[in-house]
């Protein structure tokens, strides 16, 4: 029984299905990564888990509770957090205000959580009064992740967090994500940089045309010659 599982998901936006009996699961404190070629339905699978795609078949369960019918907003209240690939910060709000908005649903004292985020991403503490729109791409991603962490989620979902950032920033971002996972949060992420992502993944899903092609630990997938040849460029 996985902590969060999208089980046998089938569905799409119009009449044609994009996902076909696709299953994605993640445990607490684990990092699960979805990889695959362009147009494989990676982001779609993630959106389906978050309730942003109508499902024809299949279920999404969080801690055994069926949440298939819930809206994304209701899932946020259940402890799921989502970081979109683009437009994932409020550009005209300051860094601190971005974090406050992340904690909008919380009525308790959020200062402790904010300090934790600043400990995780020290640069955000330095730039807390600066509008997020003025930050560099990597710093924005940190704001986006920080905003999502402000809800104190049990699951953090990231849609290509390293898109458009330099390799050095990417490594650093992955380090931070590992740190987040160590605190017991389940992390589900879609990645374009498959090799690096599988390196840090406890579990990897290789999707092709909306179906599970390979599912294994990150290590095993990296070692699998078929996966290497087809998806990791040898």
């Amino acid at each position: 029984m996985s902590f969060l599982i999208g089980d046998g998901m089938t569905g799409g936006y119009g009449s044609a299905d994009i996902l076909h009996d696709c299953t994605i699961a993640v445990e607490k404190g684990e990092i699960a990564v979805i990889v695959g070629p362009n147009g494989a339905g990676k982001s779609t699978a993630m959106k389906a888990v978050f309730g942003m795609l109508p499902l024809r078949l299949g279920h999404v369960r969080l801690e055994g509770e069926d949440i298939t019918a819930l809206t994304p907003q209701a899932r946020v209240a259940k402890g799921m957090a989502f970081v979109p690939q683009t437009q994932n910060v409020f550009t005209s709000l300051t860094v601190q205000e971005n974090l406050e908005m992340g904690a909008y649903l919380r009525r308790d004292d959020i200062r402790g959580t904010m300090e934790q985020v600043f400990d995780l991403f020290p640069i955000l503490g330095e730039k807390r009064r600066q509008p997020a729109g003025e930050l560099s791409g990597g710093q924005r991603q940190q704001v986006a992740v920080g905003r999502a962490l402000m809800t104190q989620p049990s699951v953090l979902m990231l849609d290509e967090p390293t898109a458009g950032v330099s390799p050095i920033v990417m490594d650093e971002l992955f380090d931070r994500i590992i740190e987040v996972a160590r605190t017991g949060i389940a992390i589900l992420m879609v990645e374009q940089n498959a090799r690096q992502a599988l390196n840090i993944a406890d579990r990897g899903y290789v999707l092709v045309q909306g179906e599970n092609r390979y599912t294994d630990t990150g290590e095993a997938l990296l070692a699998n010659p078929d996966v290497r040849r087809s998806f990791l460029g040898g």
């Binding site: 437009q87 994932n88 709000l93 406050e100 908005m101 909008y104 809800t151």
Partner: peptide, 22 residues
């Protein structure tokens, strides 16, 4: 204020505001 900031956030990025529970 919380509500004022939420208004600015909503104006800035409606989808993200929804994801934040506004």
């Amino acid at each position: 204020t919380r509500m004022g900031k939420a208004m600015r956030a909503y104006s800035d990025n409606e989808d993200l505001a929804l994801l934040s529970g506004i």
